[in-house]
Design a protein around this nucleic acid. Structure first.
Lengths: 335, 335
DNA sequence: TTGAAAGCGCTACCAC
DNA sequence: GTGGTAGCGCTTTCAA
C-alpha cells in the first residue's frame, strides 16, 4: 500500500532498476520495446520519482529560496509573482521566507535554506549585511538581491535606479511648472528606498537652481498609508504654500491624498501628487495617481532567471537595472 | 573544500557518526563530555545537516505546498502571509505554486509537489475538482482548501461563510434605510465567490420582502477594478434609481467608485457602496470603504495550523469557518 | 555510552 | 541493451 519505488517498478516489469532509471530520465541505452513496457508499468503502478532521493545524489534540490521582509503587500506580491513564474518555467520550486514574521529572523531562515539545500537565494527588499552575505557565501550558492542594498556592494543586484527615478519624478513636477515641491519619504537612514530617493529629489531641485530645504522632506519609518497621511499632514502644516508633492511610494501618496482631503485640499487643483512604485493601487484611487512605475513582476522574473543561469553555469551574475517609467494620470496639475 | 558531512564531523571528533547523529538530534545516549566535543567540532567545521538526506529516511520533507491561482493580489498575499507564518513557526517550509501562471497547470504542479514529497497541500481560492482531489488522495498527504470550493464537498475547508457574509452586507444596507439595492459581482457560475454571494444578496432582500430583480445584479468574469468599473457603469445605466450597491470584492467596489465619479455621482451621498474582503485597499480610498472583512491572514494561519496537525496526527481535519465582520467606514449613507 | 552496519530511493559507473 | 552495485548523507536498530 506504500508508494511504489523504482524498485517496485523494476520488479514488476522484470527489468533492472538501472533500466527503469534510464528510461524515466530519457537517457540512452534501451530498446523501444522495453521503454514501452516500463512506461506502462509506471503508469499502471502510479509511480512517481522521488525528488528527495534524486536530490541526494545530484546534490541539488531544484529549489530556490526567497527572502522578503513582507509578504502581504502589493510590491512583494508582484515580485514574488515574477519569481515564481520564471522559476517554475525552468522546473524550479520556490520556498518563501517572510523575514519579518518573527522579527528579523533572517539568519535563521538562511540556515533553514541551507539545510534544505536550496540551489540559490533571492534576497529581496532588505539590507544585505556582511553577515548575511558571508553566510550565503559559505552556503556556496549564488545569490541575487532584488531592490535591496548590499553592504558589500559586490552582490549582483536587480533593481531600478532609485535615485534617477526619484530625480525623474521631481523633474516631471518641475516641468509641469511647480517650484514649491515637498517630499514625503521613508527614513533617510533606509539605504534601500529612503536615502536614494531623497537624493534624487535634492538633485532635481538643485539642477533647477532651487535651494534644498530639508524641512520640506518629511519622513516616517515606513512607506505605508498611515505614514503618508501623517507625513503629509505635517508637511502641509509646516509648508502651506507647497503646490506639489513627491511621495516615495504609492501608499505614501495615497495616504497623502487622504490627508489632503481631510484638510479640504483638492488634488490636483490645489496640490499635485506624484507617487512611486506603480502598483495597481495607483490606478484605483481618485484621482488616479501619476506615479513612477517600477515593473516588479519583471524584476522578480529577471532576478530569478539570472539566478538560475548562475546556478547552471556557475558564473556569478552581473545583475540588471530595470527601467522605470512615469505613468501620467490625473494627480498632477500643470501650473 | 566541500561542505562537511556528518562523517567528516565524526572523523574529526573521533567518534562514530551514530554518536554525532544522536547529539545533533538531541537524542539520548552520550556523555556530556562527548556532546561538548562534538558540538565544538560541528561549530568549528561549520557543519549543517542535510535536510534532503534526512527526508529520505524520515519520509518527510517538512515542506508544504500551496496552490493559488493568483499571486500578485492583496488577498493571495495576505493568505500566503498567514500560511507562511504558521508553517515556519512549526519548522515547515512552504513552496508556492501559481496555478494561473502558465494557464491552469494545476495538475502539473500537483505532480511536482508529489515528487518533492511535500507533507501536505493547501489548495487556495480555486475550484477543487474530483480529478485534483483524487490525485492528492493518491499522493497520500492531507489537503485543506482555503476559500475554495471542492466538488466532493468532503475536503476539509477553511473559509468564511460567503452566503451569510453577503447576506449581512446587504442586510446592513437595508438597515441603513436602503431598499433599491444593486449588486456587482463575479460570475454566477463561480461557485467559490460568485454564486454564494449572489445567493446571500437574494436572501437578504427576500427576508425584507423585496422582490429579487435579476437585472440588478450585474456581473463580470473577474473581481477586479476594471470589472467593477464596467459593471457599475452598466448597472447605473439600467437602474438609475438605485441608492446602494453591494460589491462582491473591494476591488469591484473601488472600480464602482471610479465609475460613479465618472458619472458625477457622489459616494455616499447619491450612492452608497459596501465592499467585500476588507483588504488594505478598502481603508485607503476616498471615501474609505465600508466593507465586510474576511481576515485572510487568519485564514491562512488557521489552514496551515490545521494542516500541520493533520500531518502529525494523521487524522483528517474538520476545517474551520472564519468569522467575517462588517467594518463601517464612510461609503454608506444612512437614508 | 558507544560503534557497526543496514538501508531510505535513486543515479551512474562498470560489466557483460 | 541491460543488469549489478556502490554510494549520496543520514537515522536507527542491534551489539558490544
Amino acid at each position: 500500500m506504500n508508494k511504489p519505488t523504482i524498485k517496485d517498478v523494476a520488479k514488476e516489469a522484470n527489468v533492472s532498476i538501472a533500466t527503469v532509471s534510464r528510461i524515466i530520465n530519457n537517457g540512452v541505452g534501451y530498446s523501444a520495446k522495453t521503454k514501452d513496457l516500463v512506461m506502462q508499468t509506471v503508469q499502471k503502478m502510479g509511480y512517481s520519482p522521488n525528488a528527495i532521493a534524486r536530490g541526494l545524489i545530484n546534490k541539488q534540490s531544484n529549489t530556490i529560496g526567497v527572502l522578503m521582509p513582507e509578504l502581504s503587500g502589493l510590491v512583494s506580491a508582484e515580485i514574488l509573482h515574477g519569481i515564481e513564474k520564471a522559476a517554475h518555467s525552468q522546473g524550479q520550486s520556490v520556498i518563501v521566507c517572510n523575514t519579518a514574521s518573527v522579527g528579523g529572523q533572517t539568519l535563521d531562515y538562511l540556515k533553514l535554506l541551507q539545510e534544505k539545500q536550496v540551489d540559490g537565494v533571492l534576497f529581496t527588499s532588505q539590507f544585505l549585511t556582511h553577515e548575511y552575505a558571508d553566510f550565503i557565501k559559505k552556503m556556496g550558492v549564488p545569490v541575487i538581491t532584488i531592490s535591496a542594498y548590499s553592504e558589500d556592494r559586490a552582490t549582483p543586484a536587480v533593481r531600478v535606479d532609485d535615485e534617477t527615478a526619484a530625480y525623474d519624478a521631481v523633474k516631471y513636477l518641475l516641468q509641469q511648472g511647480h517650484s514649491e515641491i515637498g517630499m514625503i519619504s521613508g527614513s533617510p537612514g533606509d539605504r534601500l528606498a529612503g536615502a536614494p530617493r531623497i537624493e534624487g529629489y535634492k538633485k532635481a531641485l538643485h539642477d533647477e537652481g532651487i535651494p534644498f530645504d530639508k524641512t520640506k522632506v518629511v519622513w516616517r519609518n515606513g512607506f505605508y498609508f498611515e505614514d503618508g497621511r501623517e507625513a503629509c499632514s505635517q508637511l502641509l502644516n509646516e509648508h502651506p504654500t507647497i503646490t506639489a508633492l513627491f511621495a516615495a511610494s504609492d501608499e505614501l501618496a495615497v495616504g497623502a491624498m487622504t490627508s489632503a482631503a481631510e484638510q479640504g485640499i483638492q488634488v490636483p487643483d490645489q496640490l499635485s501628487i506624484i507617487g512611486y512604485d506603480g502598483t495597481k493601487l495607483s490606478a484605483m484611487v481618485l484621482p488616479p495617481l501619476t506615479t513612477v512605475s517600477q515593473n516588479f513582476i519583471e524584476m522578480g522574473e529577471t532576478a530569478a532567471t539570472l539566478l538560475l543561469d548562475s546556478i547552471q553555469t556557475g558564473v556569478t551574475s552581473k545583475g540588471a537595472t530595470i527601467q522605470h517609467q512615469i505613468i501620467e494620470r490625473k494627480s498632477v496639475r500643470k501650473l
